[in-house]
Nucleic acid binder design. Structure first.
Lengths: 195, 195, 195, 195
DNA sequence: TATGAATGAGCTTTCATTCAT
DNA sequence: CATGAATGAAAGCTCATTCAT
């Protein structure tokens, strides 16, 4: 069945790429992890690039779903942001391989000429910008803040501690870490005056 | 002269690696960028790994110098942190290639079995942890904050906007961006109460 | 219908093979040109070799028909040879793809162990040898001429200018070219005395 | 030494390509025949195409030398043409592998976009055209003959019997064959009147 | 009869590394 | 100290062939 072959490749590829990184993952290894023949990879994808891009796109979509689902809920802003943080961190914990994969490749050189990897996360940042815009309109955020810079900063507040946890082989969602991250992110909204 | 050959290799290697990434940079290309013969690279280094490690170590040292110099100055905490942010961002701006190189490789799989790349930045985080410790002792920071998590978050607040600027080919130190980052980092110190 | 599938394969294969050569023509490409699925090729033929051989045999037969039809007509020798030349050249012009295919593969290494490609044209040369034999008996041709060498030479006089025309994308049957070839071939019969 | 490595590759490649044809000759096989490592082929040539082109160019040059040397000698036209035929046939006999290689590839699809193989033999045909021009001016050749067609025909008179000899594993220069070819070629000059 | 997803052997090519100079 | 010609292991990719439908 077309779907199950593609699924096998998807999950095998995530495992393979996150373990060894893009370059050190051979197509043979992906095929082995996916339980298909190497030729099957090339029957379904033009090449290694396209396979990797497929994995990243499918993953980026699921990541964007997280933020969309949270912010689409009716709730007061602070609750929304709390939910965002905990949901996002839980997603990272539950998809450690894929999250590591993203962090390894997000800022690298373009894989394909036409598609820079971080463009895949464009929607993610757009959604966050929308929420920050609202917060600014509600007076929760100083007018002087540059929103696209802030969304990047918030992304950093979450992801850098998370990736460090993974590198040190610790759970992301230890209580003290989640609390600290939550506190840090929410602080960035308090008041507008620079100290 | 030994030194100038090594320097030529150092700067050529940074340029080469940051442009193409570790794996897609051939020793031929490093040699070309450095203006030396390929054999010279192997005369000075055991192999590609060791060359790369040299570049990262030398760079990590200069990065750690930034934080050390700032925090060793006698000044009040807030001023120190302000200085840290602006100095660090200026360093990223002045060493865009090297900074990109770090961000691309910091969280990847180990290059050498014995040396994880992020270990190179161990001293950097130790120094930041020391300063956060002090801040906590001075009551600038809630007792409940997990310091190693916070130092990672602060690093994220700075670096993610910075790397996004580079990816989008914008200057890191546009006023609005630097102001926003400064504001965001300093906010994480204000008060201890979670919203 | 069996016949139309086979015909579709035949004409698609000629087009494909003459365009790209035997090796660079994939079964996928033949299938595409023929408008059938790849599996259909394997349903009708054992493999690529057998398919190619079928094309060449069917083509060789049609080529041999040309020479047979001409020389079976009752006419004086000179008229026969005139007819042969013009008919043969016209056939090449009307079957440019197939003719190119022959010229590309006639002298190559064996495709199958048991069948050398030029053996397919055995009958063609046999028929020409018969006519040269007759010419020799009629005194039109010196006794000292080696007939199998001459038949090859005559084939060369026709085909090399023809294939050059195709390579240069010119019509084979431009008047001056056909006249020159006709003249050259007929000259080889004139007199027996070596200059 | 650069020269001897290149020579080893040249002769190994001719042997390999003429035995198996371009496509069925692997770079491994060329390396084996040449007595060098496969990497050495790629150190000296960009790829298989370029290596093949080098072989053909070097060979085409030596072939053109044959015709040039003969026609540059001071002699009467008939002697020149006699010499051309015997010298050319002797060259084919002494370079059977290379000659077969030419005949297999001369009329095929382009190897490289920019260079059609038969263009390599441009000079060869130019030189022959010059001599035919002279013959025409001397009245040895009818004014109505198309020279570029005739040169192709003459090339065919020589090469088709020669390649057939090779395919049938016979010597090219058996007396009866050489005599027949000589006779046939010289006939094409006699008189101008079409029979 | 006809199909096309799946296969894997075998190819071209890259490139870190060595070593004679 | 420095060089660059030579190497060969390992990678990405192609495509003739098979077979369940």
């Amino acid at each position: 069945m077309a779907r199950s072959t593609l699924d096998a490749i998807y999950y095998g590829a995530i495992e393979a790429f996150s373990e060894k990184g893009y370059n050190d993952t051979s197509m043979d290894y992906v095929a082995e992890k996916a339980g298909v023949a190497k030729g099957t990879l090339y029957y379904n994808f033009k090449g290694k690039d396209e396979l990797f891009l497929y994995v990243m796109k499918r993953g980026a979509h699921s990541l964007t779903d997280v933020i969309t689902n949270v912010f689409d809920q009716p709730a007061d802003p602070v609750t929304k942001w709390r939910n965002y943080i905990s949901t996002q961190l839980a997603f990272f914990e539950q998809n450690r391989s894929f999250f590591r994969l993203i962090m390894q490749n997000m800022w690298g050189p373009n894989l394909l000429e036409s598609v820079t990897l971080h463009e895949l996360f464009h929607d993610y940042f757009v959604r966050m910008d929308q929420e920050l815009q609202k917060a600014q309109e509600l007076g929760l955020l100083s007018e002087s803040m540059d929103i696209s810079t802030l969304s990047a900063s918030i992304f950093g507040m979450l992801t850098i501690p998370a990736i460090r946890s993974i590198v040190h082989d610790l759970p992301i969602d230890e209580e003290k870490r989640v609390n600290s991250i939550t506190h840090t992110v929410l602080q960035s909204f308090k008041g507008g005056e620079t100290i």
